[in-house]
Amino acid sequence: MNHLHSQAAEDAAGQAHNGSKRRSRCIALNINGELHEITVQPRKMLIEVIRETVGLTGTKGSCLSGTCGACTVLLSGRPVLSCITLAVECEGKEIRTVEDLAQGGKLNALQEAFLDQGAVQCGFCTPGMLMSATALLERHEKPSLAQIKKGLEGNLCRCTGYNAIVDAVLQVSDQGVLPVMK
């Protein structure tokens, strides 16, 4: 309701301002395996649609300008920044968000490893970090330290100093790092 209301008002305001109504587009987005048919203005970013329209708030917006990685989602397997990706560009692609990682109420091994290593503090970078790490591990079964750094360089974390995050990736890829928390 709120979304529709606000969108209508926005269109009205846009009309008043521009003298012509910009075309909204009707698109179908496949998010975590569910198809969402939505009407969206071209200017809407993927993160706005995921969070506001679809209501999946696990994906976090921080800089909204493509500089911190908090909003990372997988787009047909690629980690992308949903804050600088237009929603209309994502039709026909598979979008995966952090909500898709745990299946049947059970955390996956990467999520468990983050908790085992203390790789989560405030948690705000965590969803984006997990999605980047998921893409990294899909590409490299046992990533080297250099590959981990290149894979996660686009995700800022202010809490952990990154050590525990690297350890979590090493743990889940079975490279000799054991859980430190129980």
Binding site: T57, V98, A102, Q111, F114, L115, V120, P127, M181, K182
Partner: peptide, 22 residues
């Protein structure tokens, strides 16, 4: 070293931050 109580919320996206309240 017990795991964080809030850990599962934070790794699943369930954790509600101020901007997530609708």
């Amino acid at each position: 070293s017990f795991k964080r109580k809030d850990g599962p919320d934070k790794v699943t996206g369930r954790a509600v931050y101020s901007e997530d309240v609708k």
